[in-house]
């Protein structure tokens, strides 16, 4: 992973559950089939109520988002265990989520799949930033910079080696838990 990422953010509030990230009716799509993986991305965040979120997450006429960083409040990814949630975000082009807090399984699935980098923020950035703002993430120093202000992000701690390896399989191969891929 390169050390820095400059991108525009999409901002959501608290308690965004997996039905809003990828509604249940799209779970028939199989993430391990490339066309279906891309389709999952095209439906990312389609469950957000339009009243509260008038800006479209996916660029109309495409299958991807222009917002490469998702900024959220508390309890992001609560609800089901569907791995389709981090996968849909990753397939849409999201590289990192910066939330004030995560639901356990979403965080875990992000780490296990390596689809998105799940950062926790110290500050409540969803109140500071608005959709479309440009930020720079620094993965070496665990910071987010916006308009000259530097915000601290919580270090990933013990799961960082898994994320850096690229997910649970790569990590297990590195550490000799399972044989290296032939």
């Amino acid at each position: 992973m390169s050390d820095q990422l400059t991108a525009r953010v999409f901002v959501v509030g608290d308690n965004i559950d997996t039905d809003q990230i990828i509604p249940a009716q799209y779970l028939t799509l199989l993430p391990t089939v490339p066309e279906e993986y891309a389709l999952l991305g095209s439906y990312a965040m389609i469950g957000l109520p339009e009243g509260a979120y008038p800006t479209k997450f996916i660029t109309p006429g495409t299958q991807e988002t222009e917002y490469v960083v998702m900024v959220a409040g508390k309890n992001f990814g609560c609800g089901s265990s569907r791995e389709h949630a981090p996968i849909a975000l990753g397939a849409a082009g999201v590289r990192a989520v910066v939330a004030q807090g995560y639901a356990r399984i979403f965080f875990r699935n992000s780490v296990a799949t390596g689809e998105v980098f799940p950062y926790e923020s110290v500050d409540r950035l969803c109140d500071v930033l608005k959709t479309g703002d440009e930020v720079t993430l620094d993965f070496s120093n665990d910071t987010l910079t916006h308009a000259g202000t530097v915000y601290a992000l919580k270090p990933l701690g013990e799961v960082r080696p898994v994320v850096e390896a690229g997910g649970i399989f790569a990590y297990a191969r590195q550490t000799g838990m399972i044989p290296a891929a032939s």
Binding site: S80, I105, A112, E158, A172
Partner: peptide, 20 residues
């Protein structure tokens, strides 16, 4: 407890999972 597909795929092959 509930897990995602990647962790479950790992268990299918190894019977093990790294948890906190």
């Amino acid at each position: 407890t509930g897990i995602g597909n990647t962790d479950a795929g790992f268990i299918l092959g190894t019977g093990k999972l790294l948890i906190k």
